[in-house]
């Protein structure tokens, strides 16, 4: 039962205090407007029923190919992309979308985001000190006398020097900019940080620095991360639990070692077979998926993956699979494992 405590059932009966974040059947559709009067003619189902929980002080990795809705999931959790379409986002047991504007402002200090592109996520006309400290001032987290020292501390924690404060973002390299982004998020002293592909725009050596920085900060500050990435090795390095997304839905979800040791879903298997092996003599058994990812505006019926699945059965085309707990805390959404 030890494991089932770590990863609970997807629909917990009650709010469990060990989970800082509980996402239940979250849906976010973007309307497609067309025609004469801007009528809604369709919907892009960017996030289509995602359920997972994140334990306090751990890192949940979210992987999937481009356009599968990872980023939208992250932003929808933080209430950054307008209203959700359906589902629940419980942060410390409270629905994020029920918060009043004033409550939301307070909540913002407790959940933060680090963006993918360190070049567009920093306002080009503000000095770095302002960028990092603006929200601190806005929320009056520290007194005016302590402000400078606080700022220096945060910057120091993130590997930035105090004299960087007066510089502008364009004077920094990508890695340093990402440190600035991290410092901006951490200056508010959050509990939960969505890391939206924070290293994918950086080169590999810098990636390692940033990942290690994130890990260090997690230990120091007891942070919880939702780590979104398409880079499996990075996710493997940093995560405690991993979710695999395909076309707006979570196809597999569980403890990192379960997922990496024993990937179950055909999509996860194909994904993991693409991880390069640092050995020129090793042979790779790559599973090459055919076709391209279908449009999220018009996802296939039944299992969303059936158009590209090597194990596609007749009922995959008609029947939507349910989440099955194959091992303790290891969930998969696939007809291969629902025991029929």
């Amino acid at each position: 039962m030890a494991k089932s405590e770590n990863v609970k059932s997807c629909e917990p009966a009650s709010v469990d205090p060990q989970y800082i974040l509980m996402v239940k059947n979250l849906k976010k559709y973007f309307p497609i407007k067309g025609g004469m009067m801007g009528r809604v003619v369709g919907q892009v189902k960017a996030v289509d029923g995602v359920t997972f929980n994140v334990r306090r002080g751990t890192t949940m990795g979210l992987v999937g190919e481009s356009g599968c809705g990872k980023t939208t999931t992250g932003r929808t959790i933080l209430r950054l992309s307008g209203e959700k379409t359906d589902g629940q986002v419980l942060f410390n047991g409270k629905e994020v979308y029920d918060a009043s504007p004033a409550e939301m402002r307070k909540l913002r200090t407790r959940m933060q985001i680090i963006f993918q592109d360190p070049f567009s996520s920093l306002s080009p006309r503000l000095p770095v000190g302002e960028i990092i400290g603006e929200a601190v001032k806005e929320h009056k987290l520290v007194s005016r006398e302590e402000y400078e020292a606080y700022l220096d501390k945060v910057m120091d924690d993130c590997g930035l020097q105090p004299f960087h404060k007066d510089r502008y973002p364009h004077e920094f390299s990508g890695g340093q900019r990402q440190r600035i982004c991290i410092a901006r998020a951490l200056a508010l002293n959050p509990e939960f940080v969505v890391c939206d592909e924070p290293v994918s725009a950086l080169d590999v050596s810098i990636q390692a620095q940033i990942i290690n920085l994130l890990k260090k900060l997690q230990e120091e500050r007891k942070l919880t991360y939702l780590f979104i990435s398409h880079d499996l090795s990075v996710v493997e390095h940093i995560s405690d639990t991993v979710g695999v997304m395909y076309l707006g839905s979570l196809v597999e979800y569980g403890e990192k070692k379960d997922i990496f040791r024993n990937p179950l879903h055909p999509y996860t298997k194909a994904l993991f077979s693409a991880i390069p092996i640092p050995d020129p003599h090793a042979r790779m058994n790559r599973i090459v998926l055919e076709g391209t990812i279908p449009s999220p505006a018009n996802p296939p019926a039944g299992c969303k993956f059936h158009t590209r699945c090597a194990h596609c059965m007749q009922r995959c085309k008609t029947e939507t699979p349910k989440q099955v707990e194959v091992e303790k805390g290891h969930f998969v959404v696939c007809h291969l494992y629902d025991g029929k």
Binding site: L126, E134, A135, E138, R184
Partner: peptide, 19 residues
């Protein structure tokens, strides 16, 4: 993204516009 960052930081709307 930096505008989304200001939203995520809970910066007030006038400040977002003017700063």
């Amino acid at each position: 993204e930096f505008m989304m960052a200001t939203e995520a930081c809970g910066i007030s709307v006038p400040k977002r516009i003017f700063r």
